[in-house]
Nucleic acid binder design. Structure first.
Lengths: 195, 195
DNA sequence: GACCAAATAGAACGACCGTTCTACTCATGA
DNA sequence: TCATGAGTAGAACGGTCGTTCTATTTGGTC
């Protein structure tokens, strides 16, 4: 909508991720963004509102990237593409190995209901997103419901360990584990076709 | 060593974990601990020193718990006991679902070398710890080196998702995945015994 | 009893924080 | 033409932060 608003979100997103929420002052955000302080308060409900705005922006961009990477893939590849999309997202900018911004936002604002509920909503959406890709990959509803939390856990584990193992290795480990997990499960589409 | 020092660390550990590092002031720590401000500065090199002290304390307590849980277990159970130990650690106190304190410390102090190197050291120790348990469970050096990062990733993923799925479910998912992963690997001790 | 290290309370510091407010500019459209 | 809404610069606010310092008291140990 508003150009200034977009600039503020993009700037805050970058600063929050590289320097942390508490360590990034509101003055710093507006100064780097080249926007007046009053403008920020016109668009957002204080700093907490800005944080929520950043998370909204992140979520749509992230899931769009995953959908983009999954386009055209079928069967097991469609599920594994979640890891490929995550890798492309993580390598978007150098130094993108500081963990999940949503979890960091929640842990830095334990008493901010607006932020915590926003993070919870994101994780719920993420889990549903995994289940949807399993369905689209050929798994039935029951299998998708059973396997989705495992895929989700591997994705979250990959992000958490990126800072230590590096993006490439961490996500590859998770992807390989997911591959084993999918091919070993008795309800994989391949097995269903065989019977 | 010093009783006051221990009290400060235990108090800071609790406050840092439940409320975050930046949100927990030094005044708050000494007030809750019932210790004078000067005493804190006699024992620690400022707030950053206190953070490192807390991480040191956490690491020894955590690995001690894992070793305790692994005692007497053999083969695959010895490796899977890492997840049981993690669960018992997480359920030690109610509300212990706020992610890994080490990763949170690193992400809240991006420009504090003492803290970041301490966190890096911890994760390296953790990975080595996983490898050691694989060796003690009967895997050879090469297999342990190959499987350890995967076990590590599952453990980290479990901690990351505890806040969303709950301790019990998150750790169970990770444990089950590890079980599949170990039994599927061609170099498991059980397979070696069979040949 | 004298000594010394540890612990205490509390003030003071400079710096930064998030937020609010005022006064001014500027473009757009009725 | 002028009313309106968005943006700007900058001051001011009360508060909190981490750190340092002083002055005093405790608790053992020679």
């Amino acid at each position: 909508m508003s150009k200034k608003r977009d600039t503020l979100i993009a700037t805050a997103d970058r600063l929050f991720y590289t320097e942390g929420f508490a360590a990034t002052g509101i003055d710093r955000v507006v100064s780097v963004a080249g926007v007046a302080l009053g403008t920020l308060y016109r668009h957002f409900d204080g700093k907490a509102g800005l944080v929520v705005g950043v998370l909204d922006y992140r979520e749509t961009a992230f899931f769009a990237r995953l959908d983009e990477t999954a386009a055209g893939k079928e069967g097991r590849d469609r599920v594994l593409s979640l890891f490929d999309g995550l890798l492309s997202w993580a390598e978007q900018k150098p130094g993108n190995e500081n963990g999940c911004l949503f979890l960091r936002a929640a842990s830095e604002h334990p008493e901010e209901p607006a932020i915590r509920t926003r993070v919870l909503k994101h994780k719920k959406t993420y889990l549903t997103f995994c289940r949807k890709h399993l369905r689209e990959g050929g798994w039935d509803a029951a299998a998708a419901r059973r396997l989705a939390p495992r895929i989700f856990l591997l994705l979250e584990g990959a992000v958490a360990t990126c800072g230590f193992l590096g993006n490439r290795i961490a996500i590859k480990q998770a992807r390989d584990a997911a591959e084993d997990l999918l091919s070993q499960d008795p309800s994989t589409p391949a097995m269903q076709n065989r019977s």
